[in-house]
């Protein structure tokens, strides 16, 4: 069993090995126990300072990272682009170097541009955790998704069938999930209207379907992605599907569809939910949905990632 991550930064799931992911899961098991105790804090990172740089809006991920850092006793500074000098024209490297000059050990960054985390890891001297870079990757989300599946269905992913439904083209969650699940040995099928499925995605070793019924009958787990209304065309005035109502009729998960299946499947959603669009309220609140478990596990998984990366930082 490996004791240390093979990477210095968490830029994406691509680049992580199966032992890396299993080490994160084992460590997260212990942190999950910690966050369910009467006293939820441990002193491990008390001499580490973490900067959370959010160049794009986020509620859940940001809160989850901040809480994870505080539960580990790290010092935390927060930064959001909307209230900063980025608005005054400062470059990314300058912004980050200014923050690092204040002796920060670890950076958690979300950025609207794909590749921002990788770029930064090559330009500045600190550890980076990618909290989402544009349409590229969102590694901690994929880790917490897989961790939640492991918790519900057991540690062996071989032959497990996972469906990812929705806007695959614009989803960093989908890409990270595909890498993560394939590394662990699961089978993956993506589903959505053809306009929202990237060309040549089969090259990643996934199956493709345009029929939700087919996918639901095949899978053990259905991960229903949010329709990202902010990424649907926007200024170019391109529509990827005729209307929300039509999308919902074809790709929305309803209780009737769920009950018509022969087996009981696990329903996941990375949040925030558009109730009544990709998933109905009855499904989101049903026993088959593990949406709130995902949020709790997100905290444990992020604590594990922070702990394992921080343990590599040398003391001066």
């Amino acid at each position: 069993m490996t004791e240390q991550l093979s990477v210095e930064h968490l830029i994406g799931i691509k680049g992580l090995s199966k032992p890396d992911i299993e080490l994160i899961f084992r460590t997260a098991d212990e942190f999950k126990a910690v966050i369910n105790r009467p006293i939820k804090k441990v002193p491990s990172l008390r001499d580490i300072t973490v900067a959370n740089l959010f160049f794009e809006n986020s509620t859940r991920t940001r809160l989850s990272f901040e809480l994870a850092e505080k539960r580990l006793s790290a010092d935390v500074v927060n930064f959001s682009a909307s209230s900063s000098s980025v608005k005054k024209g400062e470059t990314l490297i300058d912004t980050v170097n200014n923050i690092l000059a204040m002796k920060v050990d670890l950076v958690v960054m979300r950025h609207p541009d794909p590749g921002a985390a990788l770029f930064l890891s090559k330009q500045v001297n600190t550890r980076i955790i990618n909290a989402g870079d544009g349409t590229h990757e969102h590694p901690t989300q994929a880790l917490l998704d897989a961790y939640s599946m492991r918790e519900r269905l057991g540690p062996n992913f071989n032959g497990r069938k996972v469906a990812i439904v929705g806007d695959i083209t614009h989803s960093r969650v989908a890409l990270s999930n595909i890498y993560c699940l394939k590394t662990l040995g699961a089978e993956v099928m993506v589903c959505g209207p053809s306009t929202l499925i990237p060309k040549h995605i089969e090259a990643l070793g996934v199956k493709v379907s345009n029929s939700l019924d087919e996918v639901l009958n095949w899978c053990d787990v259905a991960n229903m992605l949010r329709i990202q209304l902010e990424r649907q065309g926007g200024d170019q005035d391109v529509a990827f599907f005729p209307s929300i109502r039509e999308y919902s009729a074809q790709y929305g998960l309803t209780l009737e569809k769920l009950n018509s299946l022969e087996k009981e499947i696990v329903v996941m959603h990375p949040g925030p939910i558009n109730r009544g669009v990709e998933i109905t309220s009855e499904v989101a609140d049903s026993d088959q949905a593990i949406i709130l478990d995902q949020v709790e596990n997100g905290l444990a998984v992020r604590m594990a990632v922070l702990y394992l990366l921080a343990s590599q930082i040398e003391r001066n």
Binding site: E3, T27, E30, A33, V34, V42, P43, L308, S311
Partner: peptide, 26 residues
Amino acid sequence: DVTFFRDDFRRREKPLNPNATKIDFI
């Protein structure tokens, strides 16, 4: 398990990996 409470985190060659804590009483 005392791993997260040790005072030699980041001071040793090998990383500190946690073990399970099992206490079902207060």
